[in-house]
Design a protein around this nucleic acid. Sequence first.
DNA 1: CCGAATGAAAA
DNA 2: TTTTCATTCGG
Length: 874
Amino acid sequence: MKGEGRGKELPVAGEVTGKRPKRKCLQWHPLLSKKALDFSEEEEEEDEEELEKSVLCSQERDSQVQCGSTTAEVEEDSNEQRARRPMNAFLLFCKRHRSLVRQEHPRLDNRGATKILADWWAVLEPKEKQKYTDMAKEYKDAFMKANPGYKWCPTTSKPVKSPSCQLVSNPRKKVWSFSCNSSKDSTAKKVPKTDSMPQLNFAMADPTKMGGLSMLLLAGEHALTNREIPSSTKPSLPDTASEGTSFPEDKEEMLSGTIPNRVPAITESRVQAPLSPAAEVTENETVGSQSSLSVAPEGRPCRQSALFQLAEMCLASEAGKMDTAVSQSEDSSSTESLQQTTIKPEIKEEKADADPCPSSSHTSALLPSPSSVTSTSTDAIVTQFSSQNARVKKSKKKDVARPNEDDEVLCSEKKIVKCNHAESNEDSVCSTIEAVAKGAWIDTEGKPTKKIPSTLIVGNSGLPKKKSKPKTKTFIKENIRELDDSSRQCGQYTSSEVEMKIENADVSPQKEEEEANIESTDLQGCMAEPHHSPSSHSPAKLKEEDKGKERSGDPSCESNPGSRKSERSCKGALYKTLVSEGMLTSLRANIDRGKRGAFRTSDHDANWSDDSWTVAQMGPNNPKKLKKSKSKDESSQGLGKLEEEFEKKFNSLPQYSPMTFDKKGTTVAKKKKMDSPTVAEDASKVGKGPSPSQKKTSFHKIVRKHKHKKEKPGAVDKAVVQTDSTMLDSASKAKSCAPIAIMCPDVQGTTSMEMLVGSQKRKARKTKITHLVRTADGSVSPAEEEKIRDLNQEQDKKPFPQQNLCNEKGCYSTPRSEEAERSTVPQELPAFFSLAALAEVAAMENVHRGQRGLAESQKKELTQTPVLISCADQ
DNA sequence: CCGAATGAAAA
DNA sequence: TTTTCATTCGG
């Protein structure tokens, strides 16, 4: 968000007061601080110790990143600025519920939504709030650990950005980026930058993208993932992973062409590099280094297999001998061969196909995605992968040493180039591959296991933020199929891997089937499946499934690998496999993100990986996107899993349905009135107007009310019809809601009042006050109406919370008795019941409104419970 | 870029 | 006690 900066920040330091300029703070990422952090759940302050450690690392990382290396991130980091302050409980709550509010009140702008959220917050029961507060605390604690000296308010001096880092060019990125934080001038700083930390590298990239919270979530997820991993391995593609991990910027550069010269070379070099890293990783993983991150390990192996296969294929193709190639490839370097092979023949063809949609599809992309475009099909893809790997390597090894990396890269590039050119020669290829592999292996081996994880993670993520596009999908699918086939021949695990990755069991089987069938459609289906996870792409999936079923037959590859399937096909298959792996991860990420609605808590695969994040980042070049994507886009784009994870954790926080709030609100309102002086105010308000407030606060409140009124009208204007209808609805609802209302006799009136009151505790600022000036008494009623409307809406929405309901923790949905609900717990369900009753009433109303409202609501949330829907309709 | 909300922290 | 700033994103 803040993306580009929030305005505030940018403006100069001295805004009004001139006090601090707002520096942009980078968001702090828990993960960064520790990847290890596990926030499995909300409260886990246990981690503190760990956090501390992590913190150190993170700091180091940060410092490195910022100043250092560079890589792309550096720029951002430049950030200089400090980490952003952690969100408080309320903000967390807002973040989590804003979407709901928006759904309910589409027209409402954020300010309005915020008000509602404030109301909700006010109403929220302590218990519920506690969750948020705990999380906020946790978050804060972690943050502080990470940034020991952190001061909320920078010293007046301002910070200055850390000298080292330049300001950031990009305003927003900062968010992601870490900042030198430490430096952060003013405060804390601590930080040593030890360099080092190649290990952490994975964090680097991701963090930037991730929001602070998200990071936390990620951390939690990581923990989860690790657990999960065992069960389901994900193969992460190294390549993707690599990218994600480290250097998004690089990508950008490449894409953008910033580094024109290098670009081509880089890609190649990357290719090589990737291999090596991957290999290394795999070894490590195999070894069982995973302790830190379980995820990575598994993934790699898969990758290797796939790579090997590909390599083999390539070799075979080149040589014309599949068999030999295979045997050789198995040993080590597969990727290179694969790349080479793919490049020429098959790739081109594919390219042709792919090209049409190439750049666009991120997901599909595992492969090709963006970069692929530049070069040509396969090669491009390969390069990308490799590049990613390379990046990973860099990050892992050291962000610091670019030069070295560069050198390596160059070398690798050269090699690669040669290979490509030479392609035909198996020997050359092999040699290159081997060389690469060796180098890679060596490099990675030296490093600690930690790195591996990061890499793995990265790989997993894959990339694709966005949804795969159909075209690409098809392409990919084909590849996948081929891969599968090849895998079968080879007896490798691709399929299994895929499954693992996919998590969804469905996928794997389907894939196989698909494999059998060579048809293009199948291909698509395959792709889709992997992706599938994302709810979004159901269509593709369906197709795939169907096809798969149909096709039980086995494809060429399987039956006769060598002979039947052309090399190309085999290669393609391998390639696909690889891709699929990547895809899977990426897809998953996408999927996960894709919709919050869907969310499957599962995500088990854990792709958290940074990669996904990175990828996501990378993918969307748009700066804007970054901003949004960072936190929000989850739904729209699939960011990386990170976000999802973040979300998970974040989601673990209960989301409360509007209904709940309503009820609560009523109850609360009563309480409030009872309790405090506010009552008087309320009364006045209710009464209408702004009675002169006794206190400033009251005054403010009044003012706010006025504002609300004003705002509302505007909203109304927009949706004139609706407003009226809404008004009516609200009114009717009030009536209809009687049952609910009944619960709280006072509710209606009170509620509305309360709602208002609740939100306006804070004193208005001077500026605001000015606004207040006039209150329109008449307006009051509107405000009430709005509130009412909101309530109604909320009720409607309740259903929505679907997602919320289903969060990890469990569904709140369990219905409680209305009474019970009201009394204490925030429950969403109970409300429903009452809502159900209302729903009937609403039905009546619906007639007026039309279904539009309903339709919209439904569209938005398919999953919702019927009841909810009904309510929504109202 | 403001704003609307709450909260934490700093001045 | 007052100010900042954290998130969100429409205006």
